[in-house]
């Protein structure tokens, strides 16, 4: 039985890409980069998605960062001091989210369709396991979107889809410097009369690289040695500062 499942999976893995590349090919996309390196000088990145469509239809494109579990807290006044009182945890919040639309979302498709494909902030629904207080979940969800927007991780409004000609388009996404590392997904949809007729996806890897990655790995894998080096560095500079002073 297990063997049969594995066999099925292997066959699927072998043929799925072929099967996905095969159909009508109404839509094709490619990314300017497949991976983004977070190095010591990292200050955000720009990613361009090129695409072609065959025939008419609206284009919607979203990019989502790795899912994070985020706790939203609300302050209230306790004994004259503003402190955190209520909290709610959302389990599957994208660490980064942006979208581009060829027309405003409401004229592209009804909300139910947008919801199914996570197109637009209004269509993003996060899973939470504490509480079934719908009103609370709603206000906390809005607050979450607001705070993510302030950090530049969620868009204030959808970006444009730039058509070079009728079939060829490109979309630019800007990743700010504080984006989380992980696997990003770019999903592109072509919609006609409020129905998704074709979709294409691509992955983008965002990872620490070089010196910065080495430090991160070192700190997590050999934390004791890391601590010793941190202390030795401090001792060295402390000594250095003293001997500099003594010269005067």
């Amino acid at each position: 039985m297990v063997m049969r499942i594995i066999l099925c999976l292997v066959l699927f893995a072998l043929f799925a890409p072929v099967a996905m590349a095969q159909p009508s090919a109404n839509l094709n996309i490619d990314l300017s980069e497949r991976s983004i390196d977070i190095t010591t000088g990292f200050n955000g990145a720009k990613i361009v998605v090129y695409g072609t469509r065959r025939g008419e239809g609206d284009i919607a494109m979203i990019i989502r960062g790795p899912e994070q579990s985020i706790v939203v807290r609300r302050k209230s006044r306790v004994l004259g001091v503003w402190m955190n009182s209520q909290s709610l945890r959302f389990n599957d919040v994208p660490g980064f989210y942006a979208l581009a639309l060829s027309r405003p979302a409401e004229s592209v498709a009804p909300l139910s369709v947008l919801r199914r494909y996570n197109i637009g902030l209004d269509a993003l629904v996060f899973e939470t396991d504490d509480g079934n207080d719908a009103e609370k979940i709603d206000t906390f969800r809005e607050a979450l979107i607001r705070t993510q927007q302030m950090k530049g991780l969620f868009p204030m409004e959808p970006g444009p889809v730039n058509f070079v000609d009728n079939d060829f388009f490109k979309v630019e996404f800007k990743l700010p410097a504080n984006v989380p590392a992980g696997i990003y997904r770019v999903d592109t949809f072509i919609l006609r009369d409020g129905v998704v007729t074709d979709t294409r996806s691509a992955e983008l890897k965002v990872a620490q690289n070089g010196f910065s990655a080495e430090i991160f790995l070192f700190a997590h894998n050999q934390s004791l040695a890391y601590a010793v080096i941190a202390i030795l560095m401090a001792l060295f500079f402390g000594w250095g500062a003293h001997s500099l002073l003594r010269r005067d």
């Binding site: 994070q68 579990s69 706790v71 939203v72 807290r73 660490g95 607050a143 607001r146 705070t147």
Partner: peptide, 9 residues
Amino acid sequence: HELYSAAVR
């Protein structure tokens, strides 16, 4: 100004 705050867990 903002009563809410969010932190990754």
